[in-house]
Amino acid sequence: MHLLSRKRKETFVKILCFLVTAAVIIPLLWIIGDVIYNGLAAWNISFLVSPVIQGGIGNAILGTFIINGMACLFGIPLGVLTGMYLSEYGQEGWFASMVRTTVESLSGIPSLILGLFAYATIIIALSQSATDRHYTAIASALALGLMMIPLVGKATEESMRVISNDIREAAIALGVPKWIRTTRIVLAIAKGGVLTGSLLAFARISGETAPLLFTALFSNFWPTGINQPMASLQVLIYNYALSGYPNLVTQAWGAALFLALIVVAINIIVRVYTKPKYKEGF
């Protein structure tokens, strides 16, 4: 009797878990299905390769990659250096705890605020007057780069920190100076984690819209320089979806599908990359 009731309880919990999981997965599948279904309707070659002015999203795709690329150029090195400092140098002391707090706060700041910051420091500073704002992709890259720092920094710190102290001691015992130890041993071993963190940060900023709205603004044409307003997929989706014109809404679905593909692709790359590496190991 007792055993039976225990078995029943077990079954009950199993079913409950399954239902809850399904409740989480169903909306996700719904969204993805919706995006694919509606997005594919908009897709054709010219849609993907021609600029907005010709009814495509080509310049927005390129814009997203340029802005993200610039953000990476700025966010990843700073993030890695921060992570390196936190893991190897800043074990204690007021400065280290200040850096740690700053990084943690930075990751909690809404992206809108970062966008505002970029707007205030760059757009307003560069503008002639309040009526003639000079919008630029550089400001977007600054805002997104700032977002990347804590993400990359944390990933770097974590993946360096988990490296056994035995390895550091081995390098110390060989008389290898600390900076060589840190870069060529510890960071070299942690590079997988750093790369993963950077890719995930890239995926994360690919979805950010708020900071771009009042920095890079938008453009209907192919970009001509980085110090210019620039189209991006995020802003395009935002604008089109709100426009109310059915053909633009369809295009927004198409852009959304492309953006979703970028994020999914990155996640798959990370998955494959972080698979166990040493298969020949004992």
Partner: peptide, 8 residues
Amino acid sequence: FQKPNPFP
């Protein structure tokens, strides 16, 4: 050291 620690 006690635990072998080659650089992986």
